[in-house]
Write a protein that binds this DNA or RNA. Structure first.
Length: 650
DNA sequence: GCATGATGCTT
DNA sequence: TGCGAGCATCATGCA
């Protein structure tokens, strides 16, 4: 058995930087003054690394060669260990005895604490550092305890908790800048310099305070988590682990197919570019809004056509109607706009998706890894970054064709992918929230809610107008309903539905008149914001919003509640998978959808698997309490995401 | 080199 | 009076 005193003894023999560091003295004083009590057998830690991207090696550009460097390496660990009488801070650099002891300590005793634990746990895993106990995350706790309006890096948190200690990272920041510019001047490539270049003295002062603050924050918040937010907090703890697991699985990506599509797009783009320059009479940078505007003005487009909020703009939503409804009486001009929109759509596909995704996959044997951020958003939604896999296009805009990007995401050999999608969950939650029984009833009886909404909110005249100028009324009413939920006013409605303001105003007025509960709920929110300063979601989680921005409240409550449901579902699906013999895995969450994979098997077990997942998604107390059975659509594919087909399981 | 604005993709 | 939550790209202006 390894105990704390061992490392403390070792520490006594090691460098004693804290004796001479004023920052540390201030930190100790602060701790003693506020008499913070740390949980028994706890310690906080922080890892210092030489790189920050996961799954993607950093690239060094040296001369004409690109060199791949897998450089996410721990080069140091700092610990803050509370003992009965004092708090011991340790900075241990890779290669020292102290480092080895620190690693051992992480592996055995007591409760661990880290700020943004997901990151540190990931780093430790990659570097084969074992962390046995549950790790608490101060970032997660801070997000829950305060509200989600602000960022909660360690420094901003410090401003809230202990402003007198909040300038501890200045030295390391300025040193980092100094070294970077020195090496850059000497011709070293970008990204070559990291914190491991900084002297041990400065690094130690910085890093020890870092983990100390983390411990202090934990001591302050954790008891309150247990009192008030136990359910929410333990849920986030579980999701944290699952996010880590999903991040490390990666998604299969077909680089060859991607490259082929890329070339097709580029070929088209070259032709279109030539056409565009010919019409314009000169070459210009199509990616620059300013240059596009000047060309448009040169072609003498009526200024009011491209004006939004009294400012000139080249926004797609502004330009598209001009082409679609021939609002500009100029054949050449319309051709210009049409070509421009097509080129921009192609650029989007190629530069935002195809190229970045392919590059990532190429360096990782056809796998794409991402960051799954389960806590760090205002409403508690899960965000996926680096790359942002939640925004892969469904259709190519303007052409309304199936998008080739989705066909590049392929199933692993021998596996099927299953997509589980909550049907219209946000609208239903909204209906429940405001008590709109007409929508709930329609949903429960299996009717389409937007068709229903269209019937009781629109006059015949409006419906006729929509049908004539915009197309399918159901789709438009869906847009309108969501816009209302998001708090859009007349200008917003006009923009979303691409109609004149007076028409939008009457449509919106009709909608609100037919749904008085919408207005009533908005007023209720406003009242709560004025009296209490926050609104609560179905889980008792609070959203602090300025009363002046009350229009944001309904959306926060709905989106927040849905995010919680998704998290509960994630945990329950995982629980099922762990007990089943399916060898199935959750690949990634996408707002109101889960993508999973499972080895191919016969139809019976497949249906059973789907039913179990679906029931894990439906059997949620907060749903059943409200007599809600949210429909879950299941789709499956054995090739790629674009080819997925609906699967009936009932 | 960095911050900011404009734009566009998702739900 | 009012356009929710995200992420990613590129151009531009400033230091």
């Amino acid at each position: 058995m390894y105990t704390k005193p061992d490392i403390l003894e070792l520490y006594d023999k090691a460098i004693r930087i804290n004796k001479s560091c004023p920052d540390h003295r201030r930190a100790f004083d602060y701790w003693m003054q506020h008499n913070n009590k740390a949980p028994e057998q706890s310690l906080s830690f922080d890892t210092e690394t030489t790189g920050i991207s996961f799954g993607v090696p950093s690239m060094l550009h040296i001369g004409n060669t690109d060199i791949k460097v897998y450089n996410i390496k721990v080069f140091g660990i700092s610990l803050a260990i509370p003992t009965r009488k004092r708090i011991v801070l340790i900075w241990a650099r890779l290669g020292t005895d102290l480092f080895d002891e620190a690693v051992k300590l992480l592996g055995i005793c007591g409760q661990k604490v880290a700020h943004n634990a997901r990151y540190d746990l990931r780093v430790c895993k990659i570097n084969s550092i074992k962390i046995t106990e549950e790790t608490h995350c101060t970032l997660t706790a801070a997000r829950i305890y305060w509200d989600r309006r602000q960022r909660f890096g360690l420094q901003p948190l410090c401003e809230i908790i202990c402003p007198e200690l909040s300038d501890w990272e200045l030295a390391v920041k300025s040193e980092s800048r100094r070294i970077k510019s020195k090496y850059t001047r000497a011709g070293y490539p970008k990204g070559y310099i990291n914190y491991s270049f900084i002297s041990d003295k400065i690094m130690a002062e910085y890093s020890m305070i870092d983990s100390f603050l983390c411990l202090m924050i934990h001591c302050m918040i954790h008891p309150r988590m247990q009192d008030t937010y136990e359910e929410v907090y333990t849920r986030e703890q579980k999701v944290l682990k699952l996010a880590l697991k999903m991040e490390q699985q990666g998604l299969q990506y077909d680089c060859r197919k991607s490259l082929i599509e890329e070339r097709k797009f580029n070929k088209k783009a070259v032709i279109l570019e030539k056409q565009l320059y010919k019409i314009a009479g000169e070459e210009f940078n199509i990616k620059s809004p300013a240059q596009v505007l000047s060309i448009l003005l040169k072609l003498k487009i009526p200024v009011k056509l491209i004006t939004a909020d009294s400012e000139l703009s080249t926004d797609k939503n502004l330009l598209e109607p001009i082409v679609d409804h021939k609002l500009w009486k100029n054949e050449k001009g319309l051709l210009f706009l049409e070509t421009l929109l097509n080129i921009k759509a192609i650029y989007k596909q190629v530069y935002s998706y195809l190229i970045p995704l392919r590059k990532r996959a190429m360096y990782n044997n056809g796998k794409i890894y991402c960051n799954i951020n389960a806590t760090d958003t205002r409403t508690g939604r899960t965000a996926v970054t680096d790359p942002g896999l939640q925004t892969i296009p469904r259709l190519i805009s303007r052409r309304k064709r199936k998008n080739p990007i989705r066909s590049c995401f392929i199933c692993r050999p021998g596996y099927w992918n299953y997509h589980f999608d909550y049907a219209q969950i946000e609208m239903i939650f909204y209906a429940v929230l405001i008590g709109e029984t007409r929508i709930i009833d329609a949903y429960n009886e299996g009717r389409d809610i937007y068709t229903e909404i269209a019937q009781f909110t629109c006059s015949e005249e409006d419906l006729e107008y929509i049908r004539k100028t915009l197309g399918d009324p159901r789709q438009q009413l869906k847009h309108l309903s969501l816009a209302v939920l998001y708090g859009a006013g007349v200008p917003g409605t006009a923009k979303i539905l691409q109609m004149p303001k007076d028409r939008a105003a009457s449509l919106l007025a009709g909608y609100l008149e037919a749904c008085p509960l919408v207005v009533e709920y908005r007023n209720q929110c406003k009242h709560e914001l004025y009296t209490k300063g926050y609104v609560e979601d179905f889980f008792g989680r609070r959203y602090h919003i300025e009363p002046g921005q009350a229009y944001k409240a309904p959306n926060a409550v709905v989106q927040g509640s849905c995010a919680q449901i998704l998290k509960i579902a994630l945990i329950q699906i995982n629980e099922y998978l762990e007990t089943s013999s399916d060898r199935a895995r959750i690949l990634i969450p996408e707002h109101d959808e889960f993508i999973t994979e499972r080895p191919s098997a016969d139809r019976d077990t497949e249906i059973l698997f789907c039913r179990n997942v679906v029931s894990a998604m439906q059997n949620i107390k907060q749903l059943t309490d409200r007599r809600l059975k949210i429909r879950v659509d299941v789709e499956r594919t054995k090739t790629n995401w674009e080819a997925k087909k609906k699967l009936e399981i009932s």
